[in-house]
Amino acid sequence: MRWLILGAGSVGGYFGGRLQEAGADVTFLVRPGRAQLLREQGLVIESPDGAARLQPKLLPTGAAAGQPFDAVLLTCKAYDLDAAIAAVAPHLGSATAILPLLNGLLHLDRLEAAFGFERVLGGVCHISATLGPAGEIRHLDLPPRLVFGERAGGGSDRVRAIAADLAPAKFKSVPSEDILQEMWEKFTMLATLAGLTCLMRGNVGEIARAGGAGIARAMLNETSAVAAAAGHGPRDKFLEATAQRLTDPASTVQASMLRDLERGGPTEGAHILGDMVARGGNLSVPTPLIEAAACHVAVYEARRGARKEA
């Protein structure tokens, strides 16, 4: 298969790099600044699973269309989705599979509107990684995992073909026959983590030590109730592990949304917290704590927008 990876940051760079390392035909669609850095020093991965320095094939954004790719891996942030759609559109064929790894669920509607239901798979990734000061990808201690499948459920030839390409890479890849369940569970966890750490402006351990474990559990109850009302109630094992993760007094985990707030950048607040509140409202499920967190981030975004216009 010919793969197009939209983005070469901590997520796209890691999964795309490991795929290239395993022998797949991979091309990265990247902005000019990132492209220049990758030409100069290569795609660098630092990881407990082994370091790598690769010379990636690069396709600059805005480049003329050539032969369509077989699969596109979308790894952008939600607030960059419109630009990502425009960037990948010239490189798609009628049979190209689009595998998005964005957080939440709202992006599925936008991708379907742009490209049609049949082209868009469901997917989630689990990885703890960041970009270092020299642009290197630093994979931390969480084992990387990528789950994907047909949104209508069941298997398909293209899912099996993708699974065969991903299997040799240095991450766990899991074809799922119920990918929406996987996506809802991650959405539940992420909305709770983002709501908790952004509202309290601290990491999980700091909040737990300050007496906030009950708030964490109450937020998880809210998001889980929304998922259940939508027909994708989290499984018991997932809920138990998530509750433990969100109330661990020794944990230093915080949502990337909090890091975005602290650096003064754009956030996925509307895409994650706002969408969870909206879905709860549509399903008559009250979410007062998540609503408070969504309002908190929305006020930040409004102030940020006002500063940019000033």
Rank of each mutant, 00 (worst) to 15 (best):
M1N: 03
M1T: 10
L4Q: 02
L4A: 09
L6V: 08
A8N: 04
G16K: 03
R18N: 06
Q20T: 12
G23K: 04
D25G: 03
Q41E: 14
A52N: 01
P56D: 10
G66W: 08
G66T: 10
F69M: 11
D70K: 10
L81P: 00
D82Q: 13
A83C: 09
I85E: 02
H91I: 05
L92I: 14
I98N: 00
P100Q: 06
G104T: 02
L105E: 04
R110G: 08
A114L: 12
A114I: 07
F115I: 12
E118V: 02
E118S: 04
R119Y: 07
R119S: 04
H126R: 13
S128G: 14
I137M: 05
I137L: 11
G149M: 04
E150G: 02
G153Y: 12
A161F: 06
I162E: 01
A164H: 00
A169Y: 00
F171P: 00
K172T: 15
K172D: 15
V174C: 12
S176K: 06
Q181E: 11
Q181Y: 04
M183W: 02
E185S: 03
K186P: 02
K186N: 04
M189P: 01
R201Q: 14
N203A: 12
R209H: 12
G211Y: 10
I215R: 07
L220M: 15
A228H: 09
L239M: 08
T242A: 10
R245S: 15
D248H: 01
Q254N: 11
S256T: 09
S256I: 05
D260K: 00
I272Q: 04
G274F: 00
G274K: 01
G281Q: 14
S284F: 15
I290N: 03
V299S: 12
V299H: 10
R303D: 15
